[in-house]
Design a binder for these strands. Structure first.
Ligand SMILES: [Mn+2]
Ligand SMILES: [Mn+2]
Ligand SMILES: [Zn+2]
Ligand SMILES: [Zn+2]
Lengths: 137, 137
DNA sequence: TACTAAATTAGAATTATTCTAAATTAGAAT
DNA sequence: ATTCTAATTTAGAATAATTCTAATTTAGTA
């Protein structure tokens, strides 16, 4: 047991959440966090999990991905794509997006400096700033 | 004839494009550019046009909005929403997005300074930088 | 006026995602 | 251990946004 630390950390977050520790959720965490920071569509996850031999319905994939997102175990990213991406990188960061390939790539927050921003509209509060750098070949 | 300049400019762009000047396209331009910079979903446009008494199919709305986008008469914006927004502001700019209300608001490019960016990945070229400032009540 | 490529349209199809309602299960209580 | 119950899982239907198909119409040219 090499003990993948990404998986361990995510499992700990699941345990610390009010979500029950089901076999489906544990399998999902293991698949999602196996290889460090990645971006998955729901269908990606469905196929990846199937490849491990574990059987989970697509409805459960969606349920869990959304619950993980609500509980801070995943982040959701929308780009100029018809599908949503789930992001295992929980640090605040930005993205390159290549529409042609559908590939989303992390940009570390330190690599971007936003030195000027307008004031937030009356009565609203700032939630997050997302920078997407669209690229192509 | 007061001669709305936003409409005139967009009609000029339509004339200068290879797209044929059909009654549907002209009606669309008039509806879209009537009130300056705005953000519309396809359904928004469909309803707005219907209110003017003009009858255009939803398929044509989608066809035209996509063609206008391809020919630089409109821009497309994706936010954390299930629908695409079409933007009549052709200048390079950014957005506030309030998920709760679905409201997208322009931020002038001058109000944002990005003073640091990572280098673009090997063999790719920079297309655009989109900053979305997510806000809530 | 006739011609033809482009555009429009109704309605079907597709895709991503959510919902429904019935069966199963995790974890707490006995 | 056994029971209990709310949370979870699931198949399949439903929904919503968007695209496609194939027939009809039209813009702009000859
Ligand atoms: Mn879609
Ligand atoms: Mn949807
Ligand atoms: Zn990321
Ligand atoms: Zn805008």
């Amino acid at each position: 047991m090499t003990g993948n630390s990404h998986i361990q950390k995510a499992l700990k977050m699941l345990e610390n959440s009010p979500l029950k520790l089901t076999s489906q959720r544990v399998s999902l965490i293991k698949t999602l966090f196996k290889d460090g920071n990645q971006h998955f569509s729901a269908e990606d996850v469905y196929n990846k999990v199937k490849n491990t031999g574990v059987r989970i319905s697509l409805a459960t994939i969606y349920n869990c991905l959304n619950q993980f997102t609500s509980h801070g175990i995943l982040k959701m990213v929308k780009a100029s794509s018809d599908k949503v991406y789930f992001d295992t990188n929980l640090k605040s960061h930005h993205h390159f997006f290549c529409k042609a390939s559908g590939e989303l790539t992390d940009i570390d927050a330190k690599k971007v400096r936003i030195s000027k921003l307008p004031k937030i509209p009356q009565g609203k509060k700032l939630n997050s700033i997302e920078v997407i750098v669209n690229i192509s070949d």
